[in-house]
Structure formats: C-alpha cells, structure tokens
C-alpha cells in the first residue's frame, strides 16, 4: 500500500546547524503516529517539511505516492493534509469563527453557501456550534484550538498534522479535542512533548532526538505513585 506520507533521508539545516539529520518516515493510511521529544528536537520542522513550508537540503518527500519538490508540487496536496499550527493565532485571521472555518472550503472552490454549511457542520462535529458567530480574537485558548481544528476538518483532509494540539487548552475542551481526534477517520501525526495525551490516541510512537527518529513502544501500565493535587475545599 502506498504510504500517505513518505520521507526519506531528510536533512534540514538552519543557520549551518542540522535540524533534521537523514530522517526517514512512512505513514500509512489509517496510522496515528505519535512523535514525542524535547523542545528543539526538530518536531515542528518535520511537520513543516511534510506540507512543503520547509525545504530540505537533502532527501525526498512523497505525498500520496507523488514526489514533491517545489511549491507547485505541494499545493494540490495541502487541502488533503490539515496542519494544526502551534500558535492558534497564526491560523485564525478572519473576524468571525464561521468565516475562518469556511476559508479552506472557499479556497478549494466551494460556493459561499456550501462553505458556510461545511463550516457549521465541522463546528457541530466538535461540539462548538455555539461559537460560530463569535469574534476569533476574543476566544479562550482552548476555544481557539478547537476552532483551528474545525478549520482543518472543514476541508475534509485525509491526514492531520497536529503540532502540540494540547497547547493552551483547558480540561473541557481537551475532552472535545480527544473525542474529535478519536473519531477522525484518517492518518495522523501527533507531535507533542505531552507524552500522556498523544500516547492515548496513537497506534504507533516514535521518539525524536537531535533530528532523528527512533521507534518507541506505547505501553500502558498501572503506576503506584503519589503526587500532590488540588480539590475544592469542603
């Protein structure tokens, strides 16, 4: 079967230093891959390479079996790959939520009414239909995260690239996010330093260290531990 994303021997340098060193990766159609690693390990750079925002100095990128080199090669595949940026404010640039979510479908040729319908449908699916007419920059961090995701889902992507999906998210919206990702019927790369969240969703995991990937094992076992936590008084 053709992998949806195939990277081989990717090397990316920035300011003379290598960020990715000969990295290879294959992502299957329904695979959910968690990539965990410390800050600065090159996780975001890896995702940027997949959608062609970052150009490697060496190595090959193939999306859905097609080799991609320049901006023109990547363009037709971007609507099929939803990329959730680390900072929600980078993604939300329209005044209202409904308009922002409709932006992607409009770009891919939907009519105004069709794009709006798809936007509302995506918001509904995430349980945030009530935010549709809200102003994007007045949303909470967690709401912004979900609206960004709705903007991607409205394009009906086959792959999701999630860069720190739990950034700035509160418990209630975290549950919505998890439910939405569990329901997503496609391939996914989850990048995070929060191993707990991504390990629960992923079918495969890799560790990223110094620009290279190593296979990891997801395992679940009970811990006998004690830690301080807070409860309301009374």
């Amino acid at each position: 079967m053709i992998p949806v994303v195939a990277l081989s021997d990717l090397t990316v340098t920035r300011g003379g230093a290598a960020v990715l060193r000969g990295l290879s990766l294959r992502l299957g159609t329904r695979e959910r891959l968690a990539i965990v690693g410390p800050n600065g390990a090159g996780k975001t750079t890896l995702l940027r390479c997949v959608v062609g925002l970052e150009r490697p100095v060496a190595g090959r990128i193939a999306l859905f079996g097609n080799a991609c080199g320049g901006e023109r090669d990547f363009r037709p595949f971007r609507p099929r790959i939803g990329f959730l940026f680390q900072d929600s404010d980078d993604q939300l640039f329209c005044p209202t939520v409904a308009e922002d979510v409709a932006f992607g479908p409009l770009n891919t040729g939907a009519t105004a009414a069709g794009a709006r319908a798809r936007a509302l449908e995506a918001l509904e699916a995430l349980g945030i239909a009530h935010l549709a007419e809200r102003v994007t920059h007045r949303l909470s961090g967690g709401e912004k995260r979900l609206v960004c995701l709705a903007g991607l889902l409205a394009m009906r992507p086959e792959v999701l690239l999630l860069d720190e999906p739990t950034n700035g998210i509160d418990a209630e919206n975290m549950a919505r996010l998890r439910a939405a990702l569990e329901a997503f019927d496609g391939a996914m790369i989850l990048v995070s330093h929060d191993a707990g969240f991504v390990a629960g969703l992923a079918t495969r995991a890799m560790l990223m260290r110094d620009g290279a990937l190593v296979e990891a094992e997801i395992h679940d076992h009970p811990h006998l531990h004690s830690h301080p936590h807070l409860h309301p008084k009374g």
Binding site: R48, V51, L53, R75, R78, P79, I81, G82, F83, F85, D87, D90, Q91, F93, F103, G104, N107, T108, G151, L152, M155
Partner: peptide, 13 residues
Amino acid sequence: RRVDEAMRCRGFT
C-alpha cells in the same frame, strides 16, 4: 510569515 504559511496550508493561492 506564519499567518501566510497557515493560509497556504489551507489552499490559499
């Protein structure tokens, strides 16, 4: 730059 990239990722040309 990042806003432009996010727009391009959603098919903006």
